[in-house]
């Protein structure tokens, strides 16, 4: 199974057309040319990839300087199971 880093790397290659070899855990987002809007989109992709929900109050959850920071944040969210409570709740049945 792919590691968190590998999955994030794949997203950056697929969705942002970044060369795979340019993405290392130490890569800064700035060096990859990712701005704040790219990060917002990245959160959306991350939610799908890991079946988690990034909580609203932690728009900061992916406030990160490096790819490793993102990986650490995802790891934390998976462990804390924050994802199990979707932000918007579900539709009334």
């Amino acid at each position: 199974m792919a590691t968190i880093f590998e999955t994030v790397q794949d997203i950056l290659v697929d969705k942002y057309s970044k060369p795979k070899e340019s993405i290392t855990p130490e890569s800064t987002l700035e060096s990859l040319g990712l701005d704040s809007l790219d990060l917002i989109e990245l959160m959306f992709e991350v939610e799908d990839a890991f079946n988690i929900r990034v909580p609203q109050e932690a728009g900061t959850a992916l406030k990160a300087a490096t790819v490793q920071d993102i990986v650490d944040n995802i790891q934390k969210m998976i462990e804390q199971g924050e994802a199990t409570t979707p932000v918007g709740g579900s539709l009334p049945s």
Binding site: I40, E41, F44, R53, P86, V87
Partner: peptide
């Protein structure tokens, strides 16, 4: 998906 919309919808 009742939970979320695309990230840059507002913009």
């Amino acid at each position: 998906d009742p939970d979320r919309v695309k990230p840059l919808t507002v913009l």
